[in-house]
C-alpha cells in the first residue's frame, strides 16, 4: 500500500446562482437558486513516500479542493483516502501533525508582528521540543536566507520574503508531507529560483513527500518528475512528465544559419523554407530525431549557427487542455 492512497473521492458544492445587477441581487436575496457544482469526481491516485508530484489543471479544475481534502480541511462526499495510514478528515488532530501546508494566496503569518513570533506560537501549537525547534528553525533560516527578515513585521516584507517565511512556518514541525498550493504565485525570478531550489533540497535531504500545484509550468518541470492533470474534477493524466512531453512534443523547428544552399529531402522533414540567412526546417521528431538530423546537415552544408526550438511546456499544456476540452 502506498504512502498516499486516494480512492474515488468526489465532492460537490452547492453554489448560489447569482446574476449581475442590483435587481437580480435583491431577487436572489429572497429566493435563491442553487447550482450543484462537482468540484472533484471520482479522483484516484497513489503517491509513494518521497515523491514530488505536480498537480496541474486550469483554474477551477478542482486542484484546491483536492488539496483541502488531502489536508483534512474538507471531507469528501464519497471515497476513501489513506495517508500514512490515517484518514485525514476523521483523525484530523493526529493527522495534521504530519503535514505542512502552504497556501500561496493565504497567509499563516501574523501580519503586524515579526515572523519569528509566529514561529514561536507554532512551536507551542505543535508542541515541538525546544531543542528540536531551535535546530529546525536555524536550519530553515540558513537555507531560506531569512536572517535579516525574520525580525521585521510581516506587513513590511516583500512578497518573496514573505513566501520564504511562509514556507519556513509550515516546516517547523518537520512534516512528512508538504502541500504547496501555488507557492510561487507573484514571485520574481530570483525568489522563484530560491524557493524551487529549497524544495528540491528538502525533498532530497529529508525525503519529504511533496504535492505541488502551480500554474507556472517551469515550477513543475524543475521540481516534479510526475504530474497529475485534473480537469473538470476528473483525473485526465497521471504519469511522468517526460512521457507527456514525448507524446505531445512531436514537432520541432530547427533554424540553420548558413551561406550554402541546402538540398535535403528525408522522411521526417515536413517543411523547408528559406530565411534571411539560412533555412528553417520543421521536423517530426518521431521520424527523425535531432541527433540524426545534425550529422546529416553538417555533411551537406557549412553550419554557422543552429537553433533548435522546442515546444515549451506551456504550449504542451495548452494543447493538452484543448485535447481534453477543459
Amino acid at each position: 500500500m502506498s504512502f498516499i492512497e486516494v480512492k474515488q473521492i468526489s465532492k460537490t458544492f452547492r453554489v448560489a446562482k447569482k446574476k449581475s445587477g442590483l435587481k437580480e441581487a435583491i431577487k436572489s436575496f429572497f429566493k435563491r437558486e442553487y447550482l450543484i457544482v462537482k468540484a472533484v469526481e471520482d479522483v484516484s491516485f497513489s503517491i509513494d513516500e518521497g515523491e514530488i508530484v505536480g498537480y496541474i489543471g486550469p483554474n477551477g479544475a478542482g486542484k484546491s479542493t483536492t488539496i483541502k481534502i488531502l489536508s483534512g480541511i474538507l471531507n469528501p462526499d464519497f471515497g476513501e483516502c489513506k495517508i500514512a495510514g490515517m484518514t485525514p478528515w476523521k483523525e484530523r488532530v493526529k493527522y495534521v501533525k504530519n503535514i505542512g501546508v502552504v497556501f500561496g494566496q493565504k497567509s499563516q503569518l501574523w501580519w503586524d508582528i515579526p515572523a519569528e513570533d509566529t514561529f514561536d506560537l507554532l512551536r507551542d501549537i505543535y508542541e515541538i521540543p525546544e531543542e528540536e525547534y531551535q535546530s529546525t528553525k536555524n536550519d530553515l533560516i540558513k537555507k531560506l536566507n531569512l536572517e535579516d527578515i525574520i525580525n521585521i513585521p510581516v506587513r513590511q516584507l516583500s512578497l518573496g520574503q514573505r513566501m520564504r517565511c511562509e514556507i519556513a512556518a509550515s516546516l517547523l514541525h518537520n512534516p512528512k508531507i508538504l502541500f504547496l498550493d501555488e507557492p510561487t504565485i507573484g514571485l520574481d525570478a530570483v525568489s522563484k529560483q530560491l524557493v524551487r531550489d529549497f524544495i528540491k533540497r528538502l525533498n532530497h535531504e529529508k525525503h519529504t513527500t511533496i504535492i505541488l500545484t502551480s500554474h507556472d509550468m517551469s515550477d513543475i518541470t524543475t521540481l516534479a518528475k510526475r504530474i497529475i492533470l485534473i480537469g473538470n474534477g476528473k483525473v485526465l493524466y497521471d504519469g511522468s512528465l517526460k512521457k507527456l512531453k514525448d507524446q505531445y512534443e512531436t514537432e520541432t523547428t530547427v533554424y540553420v544559419k548558413t551561406k550554402d544552399k541546402l538540398d535535403i529531402r528525408k522522411k521526417g522533414i515536413l517543411k523547408k523554407s528559406k530565411t534571411k540567412d539560412g533555412y528553417q526546417l520543421l521536423v517530426q521528431t518521431k521520424e527523425l530525431s535531432i541527433s540524426k538530423l545534425l550529422p546529416l546537415l553538417s555533411r551537406k552544408i557549412e553550419i554557422e549557427d543552429i537553433e533548435i526550438e522546442n515546444e515549451s511546456i506551456d504550449q504542451i499544456i495548452v494543447k493538452l487542455y484543448e485535447d481534453y476540452q477543459i
Partner: peptide, 13 residues
C-alpha cells in the same frame, strides 16, 4: 477570509 482553513490544519482544538 478563508482563514478558518488554516485553523483546521493545526493539531489543536
Amino acid at each position: 477570509r478563508g482563514d478558518f482553513d488554516l485553523l483546521l490544519i493545526r493539531p489543536r482544538n
